[in-house]
């Protein structure tokens, strides 16, 4: 895991760079003005949330298919941590989105298809935490939690990718749109890319630290048992 640790250290360069570019380098958007700078935080947070949920689903598949006991425990722990981090990033995406909605559309919440979708995704992963919390036996907790995460991973694309494209939305055109073009000025596009990389590195760093904390907690428990 040393390579993962090293890669995630890029957060120390990427995050300050993203903040400087977002506030000082990127120009304000034509109609939205200075408030458009929230784009460099809201979009990456939403992207990282979806990425974290996908990672938790993939790790759950690895957990269920692995025969090695040590590896299984690691996959289970990281799948759980990734789902928790995804939930945290989703919550932050909702908060930044609500602030932006208040400025752009006049109210914090508008039941826009994308807003509704993100709330349902939040509910799915909150339900996962409730499910895991009621199972006392660790092995069963891992297996049932992993099965639920795989089902959740297969339902999430419906809300994230399908619903906003089927129903009329107040949201601006998506980055990956029907014309396959990015409707952003080059400076704004570069800032957004750096910001997405910075938040992905932040997610990686937090995942790594959470993994270390849980393995240390397990070691302490083992020492107490001895």
């Amino acid at each position: 895991m040393k390579w993962f640790d090293r890669i995630t250290h890029s957060i120390h360069i990427l995050m300050p760079l993203a903040i400087i570019m977002a506030f000082l380098w990127a120009p304000p958007a034509d109609i939205l003005g200075e408030s458009s700078r929230i784009l460099y935080f809201h979009v990456p947070l939403a992207w990282v949330a979806v990425f974290a949920f996908a990672v938790s689903g993939v790790l759950s598949i690895l957990y269920l298919s692995s025969k090695n006991e040590t590896k299984r425990d690691t996959f289970d722990a990281y799948a759980h941590h990734s789902a928790v981090l995804g939930l945290l990033f989703t919550l932050m995406a909702v908060i930044t989105g609500s602030i932006w909605a208040r400025i752009s559309w006049g109210s914090f919440w508008n039941w826009d298809p994308r807003e509704t979708s993100i709330v349902i995704v939040l509910l799915i992963y909150l339900a996962y935490l409730s499910l895991r919390a009621v199972i006392p036996e660790p092995n069963r907790k891992g297996r049932i939690g992993a099965a639920y995460l795989i089902i959740a991973m297969s339902v999430v694309p419906f809300f994230v990718f399908l619903v906003p494209r089927i129903y009329e939305s107040l949201h601006p055109d998506t980055i990956i749109n029907a014309e396959r073009t990015v409707h952003l000025a080059p400076q704004m596009r570069a800032t957004l890319i750096v910001s997405v990389c910075a938040f992905t590195a932040l997610y990686g760093r937090l995942l790594f630290l959470q993994g270390r904390v849980s393995s240390l907690a397990q070691r302490i428990e083992e020492i107490y048992d001895e």
Binding site: I120, V121, L123, I124, A127, Y128, S130, L131, V134, I135, R140, I144, A147, Y148, I151, A152, V155, F159
Partner: peptide
């Protein structure tokens, strides 16, 4: 899943609603 988790009453609705949305 709910049965294996101990079959707690409202858990079935809690985990089903978002998936069936």
């Amino acid at each position: 899943m709910v049965a294996r988790a101990g079959g707690r009453g409202s858990l079935f609705t809690v985990i089903s609603f978002p998936v069936m949305m």
